[in-house]
Amino acid sequence: MTAVKTKAGPKAGATAGPKAQGRRRLRYAGTVALFLLPSAIPLTLFTLVPMAASLWTSLHEWNLIQPMTWVGLGNYAELLGDAETRAAFWHTLYFIAGYLPLVYAGGLGLAVLLNRAMKGRDLFRAIYFLPVITSWVVVALMWKWLLNPATGLVNQALSLIGVAGPGWWTDPVWAMPSVILASAWKDLGFVMIILLAGLQAIPKEYHEAARVDGAGGLRRFRYVTLPLLSPSTFFVIVISLINGFQVFDQVHVMTGGGPAGATQVVVEQIYDLTFRYGRAGMASALSWLLFAVVLIVTVVQVRAQRRWVNYG
């Protein structure tokens, strides 16, 4: 193979005359364009242009119908002082604070259970993963029915043991826990798969060594498993936070942001600002604010990982 010096590319025609070389180069440029344009054109039209347009819109007051009026950074200034926006961010944080520990603890539990060889392990793994491939709308509807205050199965079961179940998604206090419960149930399998892959990458010798030193099961879990699992944990946390800040589908179907705005998360607010209140400029500004928050949170985590993530 060492004899092959021919390189696919513009230099291929280096020995030919200048005219042939020019033609070659043109043909090569055509080849590059042929391979790139099918993705470059749609990405420009449907991602880059909207990105620019969104920035531009965020500097205007616009109800989607009348001409835009320039307000500069007015929308951003208004957002920062706006009580509804602050509430939307709080609700989103509340969602994350409930969802993340639940989905991590549950996913870790399932992953640890499935980490040893057992009969039907693949089947159980497939079953745990089932909600992950189901659409958010279906999951939201199934849980809305299970958590139906009067006739839902959960409250009926609770009443059997003498507990009066709460109003779930109809009650401002219980609406967010309802959304959190459905969301954690859907994503448990995803977290389990990531953590299971991490668990299986831990060399058996480490556990053996700890056992020889007299460490019990719990101590081994605390001092061997958890530290060595930290890269997977880090990954789960980063992904869950990004998805958590962008929570929308399940909220929109289960509560529509209600009752009394109790589950009005940021993306729900973006949706309402645009299509209900006719404030497209403000909505665009809010979407960039959300993007900035997610970016900062992610960057901070990547920076902080050195302190606690153990890459072995």
Binding site: L45, F46, T47, V49, P50, M51, A53, S54, T57, L64, Q246, F248, V267, I270, T274, A280, A283, S284, S287, W288, L290, F291, V294
Partner: peptide
């Protein structure tokens, strides 16, 4: 994220 794009995409 898609949330940033939906409004201008709709307008486009």
């Amino acid at each position: 994220p898609m949330q940033v794009l939906v409004v201008p995409l709709f307008i486009e």
